[in-house]
């Protein structure tokens, strides 16, 4: 019984507490850059790195920071981390930098990072904060990866991945014959529709779980 609960727990965390589709945090980036899985993986890694490091730092200074200046302190920490990550991306993976554009800088105001800092890292020691950061980051990455898979496959018909450091192609698979792909998935309309459907799926799952637990307790 407890095993099932644990398995459900993981699935729950992934789906119901999903930062993008469950909690609607960090939506801006998940709509804008999810046109291919290269961008999604790059962005996901960048956000995860910033999230984990910021959780560590916020947790480290949590006892030193008085309450009324905690927002500027967290902002400075997160902004520094984002600037560093941005510079590293610009220097070593310029193709990723030009694909993600302004959204690297907007990681600063990604609700996920400040949200986790306030809700978790400021009240917990470093170890759990790291775990929380990693799990949230992975959850975010998987969400935007799911969106980009749908948008890239339906929008271009090709599933491809390339090495951002060297621009060499790792693989490229044509899944939908040429001429049958739906180009509107690469554009704004496709982004909104994909997001809506994925969010609705998560919402349906949430309702299903709620109904199941209601029936269970009745």
């Amino acid at each position: 019984m407890s095993e099932k609960k644990e398995k459900n727990g993981l699935l729950n965390r992934l789906l119901i507490e999903n930062p993008v589709f469950g909690l609607y945090l960090g939506i801006c980036s998940s709509l804008a850059i999810t046109t291919n899985i290269n961008n999604a993986i790059g962005m996901g890694i960048a956000v995860t790195v910033v999230l984990v490091l910021s959780n560590i730092l916020v947790s480290a200074v949590r006892n030193l920071t008085p309450d009324d200046i905690h927002i500027p302190v967290y902002i400075v920490i997160i902004a520094t981390l984002v600037t560093i990550v941005g510079m590293v991306i610009q220097a070593y993976t310029p193709s990723l930098y030009s694909a993600l554009g302004a959204f690297i800088d907007l990681i600063v105001v990604n609700c996920i990072i400040l949200g986790r800092a306030e809700a978790f890292a400021s009240m917990n020691p470093i170890g759990p904060s790291i775990a929380d950061g990693v799990s949230m980051g992975i959850s975010y990455t998987l969400s935007i990866l799911a969106m980009s898979l749908v948008r890239q496959i339906l929008g271009t018909g090709i599933l491809s991945l390339s090495n951002p450091f060297t621009n060499a192609e790792i693989f490229s698979l044509r899944l939908i014959p040429e001429g049958f792909e739906l180009p509107f998935f690469k554009e704004q309309f496709g982004a909104f529709i994909t997001f809506a459907c994925l969010a609705a799926a998560v919402s349906a799952y949430k309702n299903h779980v709620e109904n199941a637990s209601k029936k269970g307790t009745k």
């Binding site: 400075v76 920490i77 902004a79 520094t80 600037t83 560093i84 510079m87 590293v88 610009q90 220097a91 070593y92 310029p94």
Partner: peptide, 16 residues
């Protein structure tokens, strides 16, 4: 933070 940033900048700016 400023110090950290200037270090990273010094390293990455020439590469950019």
């Amino acid at each position: 933070c400023g110090l950290l940033l200037s270090v990273v900048n010094a390293v990455t700016a020439p590469i950019i």
